[in-house]
């Protein structure tokens, strides 16, 4: 019993490997004929361009990973993608629009953080908040100006009445009507 089984197993293994190689050869011929067709018809020009781009990207990656290049980047001036050199900290000087001091562009953000009392460190400084409170108190001083406007309205009304009094006779009748009501 066991002997025929072994023979069957070995023959099955041989047959299966034989058929597998047949299938594989068919697929290899398919791949070769497809590549041959692409080559003869010139359909692989885009592939060549892609290969070139892949090479360039690989070179760029290597150049970025190179420590000597990074040392150059850490140097005094930085070279941007347009080939122009820039100082590590922007050195243009202009006046702060809040306090009027002249500030370097590279240090403007921390200056604003202190000048306007906003940002990450504003909580730690009480002086800035007290300054803001003083500003609010000083803003309260225009309140007498608000009382001035009804006075001006009253004076405007009285002037209108005088003008009506100086008008013609018909105007007097209107004034009489007003007095009656």
């Amino acid at each position: 019993m066991s002997v025929p089984n072994e023979e069957n197993l070995s023959s099955h293994s041989q047959l299966s490997s034989h058929f597998f190689l047949d299938l594989l050869d068919s697929i290899i011929v398919d791949v070769a004929s497809e590549c041959h067709r692409v080559a003869r018809l010139g359909l692989d020009s885009n592939l060549e361009e892609e290969d070139e781009e892949l090479k360039l990207s690989a070179q760029a990656r290597v150049r970025v990973a190179d420590p000597s290049n990074s040392n150059e980047a850490n140097g005094k001036y930085v070279v941007d993608i347009f080939g122009q050199t820039h100082p590590p900290v922007a050195n243009e000087i202009f006046d702060c629009m809040n306090c009027g001091r002249s500030i370097m562009a590279g240090r403007f953000a921390p200056h604003l953080e202190k000048c306007m009392g906003k940002g990450r460190k504003a909580r730690l400084k009480v002086t800035r908040s007290s300054t803001a409170a003083q500003n609010r108190y000083s803003r309260g001083s225009p309140s007498p100006g608000s009382t001035y406007s009804p006075y001006s309205n009253y004076s405007t009304n009285s002037m209108n009445r005088l003008a009506n009094g100086t008008s013609t006779f018909a105007g007097e009748e209107h004034s009489n009507g007003t007095l009656e009501s």
Partner: peptide, 15 residues
Amino acid sequence: VTVDELVHVITPKGR
């Protein structure tokens, strides 16, 4: 290049 040459080259490596 011909298909036979391609097949001849890539068959051993493919297997």
